[in-house]
Design a protein around this nucleic acid. Structure first.
Length: 593
RNA sequence: GGCCCCGUCGUCUAGCCUGGUCUAGGACAUCACCCUUUCAAGGUGGUAACACGGGUUCGAAUCCCGUCGGGGUCACCA
């Protein structure tokens, strides 16, 4: 055991999918706060929902955190090529809640024995009926304590628990007012009688979130809890639990209440909560449009086909018993599965909103601008640059040195992708050509393998240099580089561009192109600078502007009027390829054909 | 609906705690112009906000009250 760190923060995701972008900000702030104060940042996996948790999700979340540069001092170990993250220096693990059930049970029994918790036997259906009745009568539903009245004596409660009869355990909520001292929001009061007897252990024997959090935060010595404001209303329950519990070890002291700070929510541009469900919403809306235009059966045929194609992907969940039913559930809104949303997006050719860290990674965002942008959602360093402008570009290291709870804002922040995109573009622009070439190549190898396979190192660097300043994301760069993948003998050309740049004015462009073709064969070396000056000299010799020469060439080699500068474009294509493309163009547009 | 939180340009925000220096600053987006072989990039400039109503005060974006508006949460999910 090492001595207790001055500050212990934690991030406690449930492994039911990828890391949510909002979760990433929570983790980032907790990490930064721990760093700032020389403390520890703990990663704990809250997998008490057996049905929805998976090891793959836990692993994915850890990889995404590490990718963002958020390393945890304590928690499950993750071996990376360059380092290992995690560990258990204070012996407070394990860090998967499913492996801590014995601890929770110990404290559940403590509460039952001391009369602060009791078993209850209603079925979910019975409870649901009561809840509905209360809503119908326009009353606030609260658990009616029927089970408590049934078992007034502690010894009878213990007996019933031991009998093996299915039950949940409920916490006997205190009647008194609870004040949460929040570092961000100030004192938040919850009046007496607001809390009901919430469940602390489910029928399957696992603790509920509320209970597990309180036990683990105490046992792991968490000093500061920073989380999103959606949890604010849970906090009085946690405080009540902390007041009711004492440590099971020798000193038997009461539980401590950590310092709380509730961060503003990150929401969509329409102010709704940003959640994974948004993917399903977008996919469903598109699917319904399709159904309106065609038919549900048509959609299902395509759905089945895409599903079969993607069957072996790791994201694919267990095969459903009835695909038609799964399909129906998704369409009706019964299910909001991210995976089925993805299948829908594939078959309908639509883009899903980026919600999870992996979405941004796939779409070619860099980790630096993501954490930088995230830092500014609900926090601000409040510093000026020497030129008087606000300081807002910084890295994780800066955050770790300057982050403070006092400067966390109170109002929710809309997630403006346009600004993130701009940050990402700036970060790409700040890379050296060589660094960008390497990063871009690495990204392409995973997400767009055709492109790098096509080019050697020399040409890749020329391409990367040309693409860098027009790429806001790695994926964007692929668009600018589309000309690389064009077959040299392709006879498809942008129609309007052919008219405008090659055929207009009695085929003036085409004539210049034919003349330039022979010059091109002689340019030496076949490098961007030499090619560019050859084109300039050619234009000057003809007494025409650069545009009159450049656009015909561009259309001929790229098939479209848009490409990186011609020197670079031609050098990447190579002399032979360029000649072939121009010849194909000339032949295609020849009047004799 | 109950409970809780919030309210500065379209968006993220600085300023608010410790009223005057705020004719409210920056960034993204947007518009115009410049540069330019296309697309970008870059440069210059512009439009644009203190939710509303009452107080307190010589003076309010800043303090107080109310109204309105937005959001969160009300599970054997976390």
């Amino acid at each position: 055991m090492t001595s207790a760190p001055p500050v212990v923060t934690r991030f406690a995701p449930s492994p039911t999918g990828h890391l949510h972008i909002g979760g990433a900000r929570s983790a980032l702030f907790c990490w930064a706060f721990a760093r700032r104060h020389g403390g520890h940042f703990v990663l704990r996996i809250e997998d008490t929902d057996q049905a929805r948790s998976s090891d793959e999700s836990a692993r994915g979340i850890m990889e995404d955190l590490a990718w963002l540069g958020i390393d945890w001092d304590e928690g499950p170990e993750l071996k990376l090529p360059d380092r290992t993250v995690g560990g258990d220096p204070r012996s407070v693990g394990p860090f998967f809640q499913a492996r801590r059930v014995h601890l929770y049970n110990q404290y559940i029994m403590q509460l039952v024995e001391r009369g602060r918790a009791y078993p209850a036997f209603e079925t979910t259906e019975q409870l649901e009926a009561k809840r509905k009745a209360a809503v119908a009568a326009k009353q606030t539903y609260r658990y009616d304590r029927a089970a408590l009245r049934e078992l007034p004596e502690v010894k009878d409660r213990l007996k019933r628990i031991e009998s093996g009869e299915p039950h949940v355990v409920r916490f006997l909520a205190p009647a008194e007012e609870v004040i949460v001292h929040d570092q961000v929001l100030g004192d938040v009061k919850y009046g007496e009688g607001e809390m009901d007897d919430f469940v602390i252990r489910k029928a399957d024997g696992f603790p509920t979130y509320h209970f597990a959090v309180v036990i683990d935060d105490e046992l792991m010595g968490v000093t500061h809890v920073m989380r999103a404001q959606e949890h604010l209303n849970n906090t009085p329950r946690h405080v009540a639990l902390q007041r009711a519990l004492v440590r099971d070890d020798a000193d038997g002291r009461p539980f401590k209440t950590p310092v709380y700070g509730h961060m503003p929510l990150i929401v969509n541009m329409d102010a709704s909560k940003m959640s994974k469900r948004d993917k399903a919403k977008v996919a469903r809306a598109a699917a319904r449009r399709f159904v309106d235009a065609f038919s549900e059966d048509d959609l299902f045929v395509r759905f089945e086909q895409v599903w079969k194609e993607t069957k072996d992907l790791p994201e694919n969940p267990r095969p459903p018993n009835d695909l038609k039913e799964t399909f129906g559930d998704f369409l009706s809104g019964e299910s909001d599965s991210v995976f089925w949303a993805w299948v829908m997006s594939r078959m309908l050719g639509i883009e899903l909103p980026e919600i999870e860290v992996s979405d941004f990674r796939q779409n070619g965002y860099l980790p630096g601008p993501i954490t930088n942008f995230l830092s500014l959602l609900g926090w601000n360093p409040g510093m000026k640059l020497p030129n008087g402008k606000d300081l807002e570009k910084f890295d994780n290291q800066f955050l770790a040195q300057h982050f403070d709870i006092e400067r966390i804002g109170k109002s929710s922040a809309k997630f403006d992708r346009a600004k993130l995109l701009s940050f990402n573009a700036d970060a790409i622009g700040a890379l050296t050509d060589e660094a960008f070439a390497a990063e871009w190549r690495a990204w392409c190898r995973t997400y767009e393998p055709a492109l790098p396979n096509h080019l050697d190192d020399r040409r890749w660097l020329i391409l990367a240099r040309a693409v860098k300043q027009r790429a806001r994301t790695m994926r964007d760069g692929v668009k600018s580089a589309a000309f690389v993948l064009r077959p040299d003998d392709s006879s498809e050309f942008d129609k309007a561009a052919v008219e405008k740049n090659l055929l207009a004015g009695d085929r003036a462009g085409l004539k210049l192109l034919a003349e330039f073709r022979d010059l091109l064969a002689k340019i030496d070396p076949f490098e961007p600078a030499a090619i560019n000056s050859a084109i300039e000299a050619f234009a000057a010799g003809k007494g025409v502007g650069m545009g009159a020469v450049a656009q015909p060439i561009r259309v001929a080699v790229a098939g479209s009027p848009v490409s990186p500068p011609l020197g670079e474009t031609l050098a990447v294509i190579g002399r032979q390829g360029a000649l072939k493309r121009i010849d194909t163009c000339l032949a295609t547009l020849s009047p004799n054909r």
